[in-house]
C-alpha cells in the first residue's frame, strides 16, 4: 500500500490536491493512505518549497502545482 502525503499549510489548493489524489487512486483501483502534512518544518524535510506538494512513499514528486487526477495516476504508476 502506498502512502501519499499532501504538503501544504492549509490553503484551498491542498484540499483539492488531496481529493485529486484520492480520485487517482480510485482510478487505478489502488489502496492508498492519504495524509496531510501541514507543519512547515515537516514540509521542509521533504525538500518542498512551493506548496501544494505531493509525496509518494516519502519521496517528493511534485510541488507548486495542483495536479489533475490523471497526472497523479501517472506518478503513482511510476512509483511502483
Amino acid at each position: 500500500m502506498k502512502k501519499i502525503q499532501i504538503l501544504g499549510t492549509g490553503c484551498a489548493k491542498c484540499g483539492d490536491l488531496a481529493d485529486n489524489a484520492q480520485q487517482a487512486a480510485d482510478q487505478l483501483g489502488e489502496e492508498v493512505t492519504i495524509e496531510k502534512v501541514t507543519d512547515l518544518k515537516d514540509i521542509m524535510q521533504f525538500g518542498c518549497m512551493t506548496t501544494p506538494g505531493l509525496a509518494i512513499d516519502g519521496n517528493l514528486v511534485s510541488q507548486g502545482r495542483l495536479l489533475k487526477p490523471d497526472q497523479i495516476a501517472k506518478l503513482l504508476r511510476a512509483a511502483s
Binding site: G8, T9, C11, L40, C48, M49, T50, T51, G64
Partner: peptide
C-alpha cells in the same frame, strides 16, 4: 502571486537555501 505561498518559500529559502 498568492499570499499563502510566501511562508513556505520563506521557510524554504531560510532552511534549505
Amino acid at each position: 502571486v498568492c499570499s499563502c505561498t510566501i511562508l513556505p518559500l520563506f521557510a524554504g529559502i531560510y532552511r534549505m537555501g
